[in-house]
């Protein structure tokens, strides 16, 4: 555990050092150094732009992700439980998975206008097929033997659903969520660039327009830091706690 932490800290230090060296060799308009980038970051923070734009982006991200999760779990469960639903939908899920996210964004904005709703719809649409596929395979892997066991020992339908089936599906939903979250945050930035006038994606685009490389670096660094914090600080510990009974996750 400790040595793992040391390895991580060293690897970050090496990266920053390499970044510093590179920035000294290449003009800052192409590769701004760590100091320049952090100065920019502090400047953004001082003006209130940093947290304001982050909040806007996070709301869109979470809204779109929540819708995608809901639809993905519903469709994926139906496909895993009912052969007919699987036969009817598997092709279309594959189609949805293949269509580039840009297409969803364009369609959502054309249908719903350059609005918050359009942004959330585009994020949800791009994210849900991946969640569906993961949940689908998870529900298919449900152990019928455990359900039979519960029936013999007189578990009611509700108990079988909540105490026997749900815990079997949950790891897959959790895995699908982490995967889906990764897709959602990438697409959110893209959506903001395409059709919104605020948020981290918009700010990135703005920096691009005025060729402000330190701005691009600062926004990227900030956003990545937030996402890693969510992943390592919330999702991973949550998953470890929920699934401590699973041997493969204990290693």
């Amino acid at each position: 555990m400790l040595s793992q932490l040391v390895t991580r800290v060293v690897s970050i230090a090496v990266f920053v050092a390499a970044w510093q060296v590179t920035s000294m060799l290449i003009p800052p308009r192409y590769v701004p150094g760590p100091a320049t980038t952090f100065a920019k970051l502090i400047e953004f923070a001082g003006s209130g732009a940093l947290l304001g734009n982050l909040a806007t982006t996070m709301i869109r991200l979470l809204g779109g992700f929540a819708v995608a999760l809901l639809v993905g779990v519903a469709v994926g469960s139906a496909m895993g439980l009912y052969r007919r639903a699987e036969g009817a939908l598997d092709l279309w899920v594959m189609v949805c998975l293949t269509i580039p996210s840009l297409v969803y964004i364009i369609i959502a904005f054309l249908w719903l206008g350059l609005t918050e709703l359009g942004a959330i719809a585009a994020i949800a649409w791009t994210t849900f097929p991946a969640i569906t596929v993961n949940v689908w395979s998870g529900v298919k892997a449900i152990d019928q033997g455990l359900i039979d066991m519960a029936r013999v020992f007189r578990a009611s339908r509700a108990v079988r659903g909540f105490a026997v089936i749900l815990p079997q599906i949950l790891p897959y939903v959790m895995g699908a969520s982490r995967y889906g979250f990764g897709i959602a945050w990438k697409v959110t930035v893209f959506v903001e660039l395409m059709g919104r006038s605020d948020g981290v994606g918009y700010q990135l685009n703005y920096s691009f327009q005025i060729f402000d490389m330190p701005g691009v670096f600062a926004w990227t660094l900030f956003f990545v830091a937030i996402m890693i914090t969510i992943e390592l600080g919330i999702l991973k510990p949550l998953e470890r706690h929920l699934f401590r009974w699973r041997p493969e996750l204990r290693a």
């Binding site: 033997g145 455990l146 039979d148 009611s156 105490a163 815990p167 699973r246």
Partner: peptide, 22 residues
């Protein structure tokens, strides 16, 4: 059963508690 069919997310104790409850 031929296979144990214990609920893998429950401890030994809680597996027994489960059937007492149901």
């Amino acid at each position: 059963f031929q296979e144990h069919r214990l609920l893998p997310w429950l401890s030994v104790y809680d597996n027994l508690k489960f059937v007492l409850r149901t």
